[in-house]
Design a protein around this nucleic acid. Structure first.
Length: 438
RNA sequence: GCCGCAGUAGCUUAGCUGGUUAGAGCGUACGGCUGUUAACCGUAAGGUCGUCGGUUCGAAUCCGCCCUGCGGCGCCA
């Protein structure tokens, strides 16, 4: 076969109809009789039905083609045409089939459990579903870079090995680091705060590790977080950056991945209407009011919103909402108190963006405490060794300024966009408390 | 850390108030079929019923430990 292969997507272009094309890929399905053979061919772009008759190929080649198992790699040549009888509406009449690699029996067949597919994730990546999700994922992370670069941010890469913890009471993965123990990063924040005094506005898309013993459809032990940190910015401005960022991500997905959203049955209309609306920003105290008045749910002021409360609250909204100013008590050490807040107790200058549809928190952020003394006190209160944070406290000693930042959970956003049942499908090889294979 | 669900052929499963040789579909092998849509028809191979122990004349089935996986709470993105 001398002609250069083209993609299945290219072959379906109207200008190619009636032409002879060379395609290459993997056998996705086979069907046939003793006269006719149907191969559905798959490449990264699409699938297409190829048809061959015994006469067209000749006895010997017909028989050997009929024996090719699913997932065999082949190159084919034939004439492409639109045909209503073919699934997808296009069909290639084969003249030649070149076997590149005959597959063993493929373990994934018609019936499969979630568990089996996770055990065979390395092969399940070939499915239309995972193919579509990974394409949307690529758009999402690309859009994050695009968004922040357009807004004048610099990409800043934090260390993954870190000696400190950053979130109070957090669970970190310990790593043997030569002859001592350090941790895998669970946020870039402390390092980002160092960098803004040089770059002012920065962002990253990095892996994050949390040893939380959470076994839910919303948690991963290793996930990707897209964070930003900006000098001279208060937390409410950060909220509006987050809203614009998430809307930008969705716009790009709607622009580039309609086919994938269709394969995933992701109901893109729900996204389209979400991005055309203004997303509500309410305080924690107001959220409790909504829960009481509209859901008859009494929550004691001062308690963090739990999953039940969050889900109940989101029943009243069909876009993401941002809840600001949580009680200081429940928050990490670096989140400063907002003075003169209309609330029963001290609240922090912080926020969470919650997605509709039970996807939970997709963004969490805050303004950062700029005062060395109050940070030191907060660290001591949490039983931290202040000496380890000396470099961090230095940042408040040399020209401290108001600054804010947040982290966006890439897989949470992707799960919402793709309408996935489980966040484990939003990442190619999920790592959870009970799974680190394959 | 707490609570719950599940483990039977390569895969998906039925059987589970104990009782003959543990049934089926998909896949596989072989044969058939003039266009299939994760086709259809026929034949066949394929099972120490997660592990260990207990109850019983008898355990896939009842009980206990353990292993593995899954989900929910808490916590978080």
């Amino acid at each position: 076969m001398d002609e250069a292969p083209i993609s299945i997507q290219e072959a379906k272009d109207p200008s190619k109809q009636g032409n002879e094309v060379t395609l290459r890929g993997w056998i996705y399905r086979t069907r046939g009789s003793n006269r006719m053979l149907f191969l559905v061919l798959r490449d990264s772009t699409d699938i297409i039905q190829c048809v061959a008759s015994r006469e067209d190929l000749g006895e010997e080649r017909f028989i050997s083609a009929r024996e090719l198992p699913v997932e065999s790699a082949i190159v084919v040549k034939g004439r492409i045409n639109m045909d209503d009888r073919a699934p997808g509406g296009f069909e290639v009449h084969l003249k030649e089939i070149l076997t590149i690699s005959k597959a063993d029996r493929f373990p994934i067949t018609k019936d499969h459990s979630e568990e089996f597919l996770r055990e065979n994730r390395h092969l399940w990546l070939r499915s239309r579903k995972m193919n579509a999700i990974m394409k949307v994922r690529s758009t999402v992370t690309g859009a994050i870079h695009e968004f922040f670069r357009r807004e004048g941010y610099h990409e800043f890469t934090p260390p993954i090995f870190t000696p400190n913890q950053a979130e109070g009471g957090s669970t970190l993965f310990e790593v043997k680091y030569y002859d001592r123990t350090i941790y895998l990063s669970q946020t870039w924040q402390l390092y980002a705060e160092a960098a803004i005094f040089s770059l002012e506005r920065i962002y990253d898309v990095s892996p994050t590790f949390r040893a939380e013993r959470s076994k839910t459809s919303r948690h991963l032990s290793e996930f990707w977080m897209a964070e930003m940190e900006a000098a001279w910015m208060d937390y409410l401005e950060a909220v509006s950056v987050a809203e614009r960022e998430v809307k930008f991500i969705i716009e790009k997905v709607l622009e580039r991945n309609m086919k994938e959203l269709e394969i995933l049955e992701a109901e893109p209309e729900r996204l389209r209407s979400a991005i055309s609306a203004k997303w509500p920003v309410i305080t924690y105290t107001e959220a409790l009011g909504i829960l009481k008045e509209r859901s008859g749910m009494d929550v004691e002021w001062g308690k963090d919103l739990r999953t039940v409360e969050e889900e109940e609250l989101m029943k009243h909204f069909d876009t993401p909402i941002t809840v600001v100013e949580y009680p200081k008590e429940a928050m990490a050490f670096y989140k400063p108190v907002k003075e003169e807040a209309d609330a029963p107790g001290p609240v922090a200058k912080c926020f969470d963006m919650i997605a509709p549809g039970g996807y939970g928190e997709i963004v969490g952020g805050s303004e950062r405490d700029t005062d060395a003394a109050s940070l030191e006190e907060a660290l001591k209160r949490e039983g931290e060794d202040v000496r380890k944070y000396d470099w961090y406290l230095d940042l408040r000693r040399y020209g401290s300024v108001q600054h804010s930042g947040y982290g966006l959970g890439v897989e949470r956003v992707l799960a919402w966009i793709c309408k996935l049942d489980n966040i484990k499908d939003a990442i190619p090889f999920p790592r959870t408390m009970t799974r680190a294979y394959p």
